[in-house]
Amino acid sequence: MTLLHVENLRVTFPTRQGPAEVVRGVSFTLGRERLGIVGESGSGKSQTGRAILGLTPPPGRATADRLEFDGIDLRAATPRQWRGLRGIRMSMVMQDPKFSLNPVMTIGRQLMEAARRTASRAEARDRAMAMLEAVQIRDPARVFGAYPHELSGGMGQRAMIAMMLIAEPDLLIADEPTSALDVTVQIEVLRILDRLVQDRGMGLVFISHDLRLVGSFCDRVLVMYAGRVVEELKAAELAQARHPYTQGLLNCLPRIEGGRRPLPVLTREEGWAL
């Protein structure tokens, strides 16, 4: 079943040199699966994720031939419709918990604020506590009463994920959700996301620069370069990537097994950006 249709998505920012198109005709569909979007900085992967939620920062503009979430045309959505979707049926987790949590509100209040949109006050409290447990926070009562600065990065990110998932969204866009975390914590956070996809049938768009991680975690991968999708492939077949950019990205990573010295570097061809 298809949850999200994106056809010919374009995001443009006005600059002094004229309009700069940072996403240039991206098309894909998403079912109840884990879709990875990988690319280097400036490839347009984050702007793609933001445009889906209608969060392209002004003066940027997003246009598409089709942008449809569960039968709703997002291009024509009214502010009222958006309020009914964002944070309830579709959510986003950002990279750094330090900047995306409210520093002067306890975690519990922030969670309840998110839960209150779909639940009564008493129910919101129970759901908040249950959600903190669901994201593997060992002492949910302490975290509930804590301020963001009292938590470690890993805890903060789990609290963020709890907040985004409290309304049980159908679609989650995760923009580098684990890049600020230590590797051992990273795996735990991925496990939480994985379970939500498996158990609740959530659709997940996982945006990352880490090809190795995306390859091992997602079902399908879109590789972006200069605002375009240059290759789409099954994560399991990443090693058989055909596009020279994907191959280059894979090859330039150092390996514990070692071998190549100097590391192969990526030589960019102008044709890729056309």
Binding site: S41, H209, G248, C252, L253, P254, L263, P264, V265
Partner: peptide, 15 residues
């Protein structure tokens, strides 16, 4: 740094 740039800097340090 991005992965492709990382490779260039590591090679530079190695050399």
């Amino acid at each position: 740094l991005d992965a492709s740039i990382q490779a260039e800097v590591l090679n530079l340090l190695d050399r």
